[in-house]
Design a protein around this nucleic acid. Sequence first.
DNA 1: ATATCCTCGACCGCTGGGTG
DNA 2: CACCCAGCGGTCGAGGATAT
Length: 448
Amino acid sequence: NGELVSASTRGNGEEGSLITDNAKTFMNIPLKIPYKGHLKITGEGIIHRDDFEEINKKIPNEEDRYKTPRNLAGGSVQQLNSEICSKRKVYFYAFNVIEGFDDINSLSERLYTAKRLGFDICTFFEYNALKHDFDTFNILVNELVNIADETMTPIDGVVIMYDDIAYGKSLGKTGHHYRNGLALKFKEEEEETVITNIEWQVGRTGKITPVAVFNPVILDNTTVSKASLHNISTMQKLNIKLYSKVTVVKSNEIIPQIIKCVGGTSYDFEYPKVCPVCGGKTTFVGDDETMNVYCKNSDCPAQSIRGLSYFASKDGMNIDGLSDKKIEKLVDAGIISNALDIYKLDQHRDEIVEFDGMGEKSFDKLLLSIEKSKNVKLENFLAALGIPNVALSKAKIISREFDGDWNKFETAVTNGFDFTQLDTFGVEINKSIHKYFREVFFANDIYR
DNA sequence: ATATCCTCGACCGCTGGGTG
DNA sequence: CACCCAGCGGTCGAGGATAT
C-alpha cells in the first residue's frame, strides 16, 4: 500500500544484501507513494561530485580522504549504522521497473510513471535508428555528458536499452548479463610508468601467471601498481621486459591493464624454470600464439591453497571466515591439505585459537559456518570441487538434471552418464568430469 | 576497563585470454 | 558465443591485540 518495504544491493545478481534502513536515508527516495501493489524498481545509488568534495573537505588528513564517489557510495549503503549513510547524501536514480506497471510495455513510459509517483529517474533520451541518423546518436550522448557535468553526476559511460520490454526479455540473458542492452564506456585515462619487477603467481590449476609491478601511477584517482600480464605470449607480443616503460590504463575504471610498451631501458629476464612456491620444475605448454608456464607438482602448496580457497568460496561451499589468508596459514601449519581436512578442524582447536587474529570466538564462528556448509546445494558442492571446466553455471545445469540430488548424480556418474546430452556440454567437459571422479574423487576415498 | 590500532574479510566494481 | 579462470583496488565491518 505504497510503502517502502525492502531495499537490497545487486550482489551477485541473484542475492544481494538487505539495505532497507539505509535506503530510507537516501536523499530522494519516496517512503510513501500513491500506489497499491508490488513494485520493484532498480537503479543506481550515487554521491554527487559536489557532495563528495564537501564530505572530503571535512577530513583534515589528506591520506584519510575518500578516493572516488563510486566506492564511497558502495561503502555507504552497506553501513550497519544508517546514520552514517544518511550523512553521505546518497541519491537514488531509477533505471528500470522490474515488477509492477505490467500493462506498460515501454521502459521509458514505466520510468515516467515511476517519476510521477515520486522517484527520481536516470536522465535518458529516446533514439530510433530507423528515424534518426548516427550523428543524432552522438549528439544525444554528448548531451547526456553535459547534463551529468552540470548536475555533478559521476558517470563513466552511457547505457543503451531497448524500450520494448517484452522484446528485451525475449533476448534472454547470459551467465552474467541480460541481452536487452549494452553499456558504452568512455575512453579510459592512461599513464606511463616503468616496470620494476615481474611476479609469478601460481593458481589452483598450476598455471603460473606473470604480474607486472611498476612505479605507482594515479588513474581515476586511485593508485595502481600492478597489472596481470596473462601469459608469456602476451608479454612477448607487448615486448615487456624488466624496466620497460609502459602505458597503463584501467579498463572500465577497475582492472589495471598494460596496453603497450613505449621503450625505456629494458633488460631481458628469465622465465621461471622452477615453481616460485614449491621449487618444482615447471613445464611450458602451448605454441607461439599462447605460451603458458605450469607447475605440475600436485603437492604444490600454492595449488592447495588456491584450490581450498575456491572450495570455500561463495560459489562453492560458502564457508564464512575461511579466507585465503587463513587457508594459507592452515596449510603452512600442516593442519590442512585437502578439503576433507577442513571438516576435521575441530580437532586442532588449541593450536588454531593461538593464531594471530584468531581467538575462541572467531574459531567457534568458523566451525559453525563449516557445519552449515555441509548442507549446501548440489550445484555449489559440484562447483566447490574445482573440476576443470565446471564452475557454477555448468554445475547448475548438472544439478537441475539430477533434481539437486547427490545420490542421483552419483549413480549416474558411476554408470558412465554421458554429460554431452546436457545443453552446452561437450566431449571435453564430459571427459573432464569422469576423469575427476575416477582419478580424484572416488580414487582417494577422502570425500564423504 | 576503555580506547585505539591492526589485520583480515566481505563486498563493491569487471575485463582479457583461453577453450570448446 | 558463452563460459571458465585469474587478475586488481577501495570501502567498511569485525575481532583480536595493544596502548592508555
